[in-house]
Amino acid sequence: MKAVQEFEMHHPMAKYLRTERFPHIWCEGCGNGIILGCFTRALDELKINIDKLVVVSGIGCIGRIAGYLRCDSFHTTHGRAIALATGIRLANPNLTLAVISGDGDLFSIGGNHFIHAARRNIDMTVICSNNFNYGMTGGQLGPTTPLHSYTTTSPYGNIEHPFNLVHLAAAAGAVYVARWTALHVQRLTASIKKALQKKGFKFIEVVSPCPEIFGRRNNFKKAIEMMRWLKDVSEIRHGYDPSKAEITMEKIVVGEFVDVEKPTYEELLQKKYIKVQEKLREKNAG
């Protein structure tokens, strides 16, 4: 507990965290802490009003992030973070809203909600910690597990083709799509800042090392080896065609893939509202 006290005293981001809940549940070498760090730095640099910030998460290791942030936060049922966040956003357009969850939560059980929120262009920033497997339940096959990788439920190697999340997000209509790894701390922070300032459905994928659960089964003997691997295989290519950016063990293209403008659901609704109110006034006056 001495470490927690020292952290509270000296760490500039401690004020954003529910430090009374530390130590956190994440394993050594996990990328989730890095995502939490980048997110709080983005909040800090943008001077976001934390009283008006809501973070929603689903189930899984990264799902616990909502409970570590000292803001209004909702740790929802498995897969439903985006649907619940849609309700929050539409009911209060003045809040800053982020969904931070995992690949299984957002793209397996919650996949339908992801594509529909992107299609509607609901204003929210979605950050996905992609660790290639279901870490919290002990390392099962997920929708992003690379082909031929080993998990507890693909003991002979994965035969399912993984989702290319940035391609999926772009095709579903997200106005901002980026991918980084847990190694790209500065760039990830800049991306989160950009997304938080932009209106519409924004998606950031973070390839996050899971050395304890995924790494061990896939020839990464130490956490540092996963980080080295991310360094070796990642390649920054802004504006790259997201449909060609599949993740393989040999190559991970990172960067900003989409950055476009499109009216949000809320903006279109507001326009309809003004029209309806005008008509009602005319009717009442007549």
């Binding site: 809501v54 929603v56 209004d72 909702f74 929802t76 049922t77 897969g79 439903r80 649907a83 619940l84 966040a85 849609t86 309700g87 929050i88 956003r89 539409l90 009911a91 209060n92 809040l95 339908n112 909600h113 529909h116």
Partner: peptide, 16 residues
Amino acid sequence: EDELASMAAIIGASWA
């Protein structure tokens, strides 16, 4: 998109 989402959305709206 479905009733799972509808129920989730009203919970979110209520907390807002």
